[in-house]
Write a protein that binds this DNA or RNA. Structure first.
Lengths: 193, 193
DNA sequence: CGGTCTCTTGACGGAGTTCAAAGCTAGTGG
DNA sequence: CCACTAGCTTTGAACTCCGTCAAGAGACCG
């Protein structure tokens, strides 16, 4: 499917735009191919763009005090991703963003997004939904982080998103769930017997 | 300060409304006094409203598997709070919401909020900012939860928000940081010597 | 096939929990 | 306005989950 088609389909879930308007709106974005493990944002650098995943998968992570990568988020098809604070105020980013797989994405700069919203106020509604949904997901994530043991994190993930667990290497699963690959290994061993 | 004044001041940070429009917008909300420990939303029940804190403090929590309250969020003056998923889709709530202190709040129902947004599209911009900010805060929260020990959680909180730590009982601090009151006590003892 | 990622195994240690009991404090009613 | 009590906070001992370190076994890519 064409990038514009994917994006149009997503927008039309939340707001209405004429075909002519959509063409113009789409002009604010650029399409990019990114290779597996390619970095889009580097922790500590400016975060200039907001990313929309057309195909593939991005992840957000930071380097913790022990010097290991802690993954905080994955973005799959039709999800937006950026370091919101760094993007909004054009500050140094607290996270890196990297492609997990070969991906196709849309990208928009801070200035373009602001201009887009000025010119097409209907897009305020679209982004209101996008942020509301993302916030709701983050709220549930926090609840989840507090409600279960690390062992349960893994078991639940396997039960709810088996294809995702297949799609992603184990060390990233461990990094996302906040524990060591060694411990993940131990859980998996238990599951076999 | 008058409720309408507090709210108007907040709205005007993000969008512009004429005085006449503001009057009408304000009509979609109702003002309420809530007593200390009064419950606004009960886990498992419908979450009918979105709350805006004028004065005082609300908290959001759930009952974890061990049967103890886990606080996930506090909302102070000018912050919005609700269970976003339950509110948006009018489903059973995953959280309870309770007043920590005697508070004054604004309240809007799901239907009214939708109608408000239809009638005053400028308010889409306002809520877009509200959710964007809340999402950004939640994103940093997740990073934070992964990057420090529980001992550091407490130390950082005291350093960054000493008035807040004074304002709230210790068992709520422990519940918010995700550890036991006993362990909090142990940390405090260390700090004295 | 050779080397570099990735995953597994096991021994040990420490941060944080649990349980039980005692000391404190603040709000309530008399 | 004082006294009583329920609810908060502190202590200490035993225990557990999970991280660390080190080393070996697979697996995948050029």
């Amino acid at each position: 499917m064409e990038p514009s088609e994917i994006f149009k389909k997503h927008i039309s879930k939340f707001t209405t735009l004429s075909d002519a308007d959509f063409e113009e709106v789409f002009g604010f974005f650029t399409v990019h191919e990114v290779a597996k493990k390619e970095t889009l944002v580097e922790e500590g650098q400016l975060c200039r763009y907001h990313y929309f995943v057309l195909e593939g998968m991005l992840r957000q992570f930071f380097i913790n005090e022990k010097g290991t990568e802690q993954t905080t988020d994955f973005a799959l098809e039709t999800w937006w991703l950026t370091d919101n604070i760094a993007y909004e105020h054009q500050l140094a980013s607290s996270f890196s963003i990297q492609a997990v797989e070969r991906s196709r994405i849309l990208r928009i700069s801070r200035e373009n997004q602001e201009q887009l919203l000025q010119q097409f106020p209907q897009m305020e509604r679209y982004f209101r939904f996008v942020y509301q949904r993302a916030y709701a997901a983050a709220q549930m994530r926090v609840k989840y982080l507090f409600s279960r043991s690390k062992e349960d994190f893994y078991r639940d993930l396997v039960r709810k998103y088996p294809e995702f667990v297949q799609r992603v290497p184990q060390y990233l699963i461990a990094s996302f769930l906040g524990f060591t690959p060694e411990y993940l290994s131990e859980i998996r061993r238990k599951d076999l017997s």
